[in-house]
Simulated assay, not measured.
Amino acid sequence: MSTTKVLITVKTYPSLSEKYDELVCTAGFTEDGRWIRIFPVPFRKLNYASQYEKWQWIELDLTKNTSDFRPESYRPANLDKDIFMLDKMNTKFNWAERNKITLKNVCTNLTELIDRAKDKTEKTSLSIVKPKKVIDFIWEPCEREWPKKKLDAIYANNAQGSLFDIEETKAIFQIVKKLPYKFSYKFTTDDDVLRTIMIEDWELGALYWNCLKNADGDEDEACRKVKVKYFDWMYKKRDLYFFMGTTKLHHFVSPNPFIIIGAYYPPKVEQLSLF
């Protein structure tokens, strides 16, 4: 694919990798409106000038990720090469510029999208979905710590060849905190199937930690504040869509391989009566 311009619309909460330390799944659109996934990206280890934001055009050299069968999956040709930051897309006129590229191909039936994912020729793995009705936004406890095996491997990798031992490396290399809750939307699309699907948005993770700090460590209050933003405001006050993507591991084996990897919530546009 060589040098490519990509509009970043998705950044998932970081996950751990024994090879790359921390990874962020990044997705967005090319200039002609095609979905693209960029993985792996060790985001927090990029130079500050290469740490792109959502809704920013970036330019980098890409090559097909041959270890990933999903057609939208590409990887940086060189992880050591800088990513060029270009213009950031504005929100003027009710997000008109963003809507023009983002809402070009909206899915309203998740059953049909899953069928396209399972099709061995099409293998669709990224889409924007318009829910018919959002029933609820929920959370449930999950593992509170990263797996020890991965942590030990990451600290050992970062200590090798340095002047520090593993204990000193732990103090210097601060791994992102694991979210202690799994957040999910309960919703339907035009197929009228009620589904509960997890959301792994970086913005949600950052919001949770900020809410926890403001709530003096009260986790229930922090989760309720997240719901105020992601349900009471995004769904009830805005025009909510879901950025959805499959996980490679579950793409062909899970009944529904899609998770919500981001939220898109332009302002509602009031329809004016002709009478």
Score class of each variant (00 low, 15 high):
226 V>T: 03
180 P>R: 04
231 F>A: 00
109 N>T: 07
135 I>Q: 06
71 P>E: 01
242 F>K: 00
90 N>P: 10
200 E>P: 01
34 R>W: 00
73 S>P: 05
94 N>A: 14
237 K>H: 07
196 T>R: 13
145 E>D: 14
166 I>Q: 03
100 K>S: 08
262 G>F: 12
212 L>K: 09
269 V>Y: 00
35 W>D: 09
2 S>W: 10
94 N>V: 11
262 G>Y: 13
36 I>R: 07
77 A>G: 13
59 E>Q: 09
250 H>L: 12
258 F>S: 03
90 N>M: 07
230 Y>M: 00
257 P>Q: 08
257 P>M: 03
88 K>M: 13
46 L>S: 00
155 Y>N: 05
73 S>E: 02
131 P>A: 04
15 S>M: 08
34 R>P: 00
170 K>M: 12
99 N>K: 14
226 V>N: 03
120 K>W: 01
242 F>G: 03
267 P>H: 14
72 E>K: 07
258 F>K: 03
181 Y>G: 13
234 M>T: 05
209 W>C: 08
234 M>A: 09
36 I>E: 01
236 K>M: 11
1 M>E: 06
98 R>G: 11
201 D>K: 04
71 P>T: 02
91 T>P: 05
14 P>L: 06
81 K>N: 02
12 T>M: 02
213 K>L: 10
70 R>A: 04
199 I>R: 08
25 C>Q: 04
4 T>C: 09
119 D>H: 09
192 D>Q: 12
49 A>D: 15
32 D>A: 05
207 L>V: 05
200 E>K: 14
122 E>C: 00
180 P>K: 02
148 K>M: 12
163 L>Y: 03
65 N>P: 07
129 V>F: 11
189 T>A: 11
52 Y>M: 08
50 S>K: 02
96 A>G: 09
191 D>L: 01
20 Y>R: 07
227 K>S: 07
111 T>K: 00
267 P>F: 11
156 A>C: 10
11 K>T: 15
95 W>A: 09
65 N>R: 14
42 P>R: 08
150 K>V: 09
9 T>K: 05
22 E>G: 07
235 Y>R: 08
161 G>N: 10
156 A>F: 13
38 I>H: 03
91 T>N: 13
200 E>D: 13
187 F>Q: 02
65 N>H: 05
151 L>I: 15
177 K>P: 05
216 D>V: 05
120 K>V: 00
187 F>D: 01
47 N>F: 09
86 L>P: 04
164 F>H: 11
208 Y>N: 12
147 P>F: 14
144 R>T: 15
51 Q>V: 13
9 T>G: 04
4 T>E: 10
142 C>S: 13
70 R>T: 09
73 S>V: 08
219 E>Q: 06
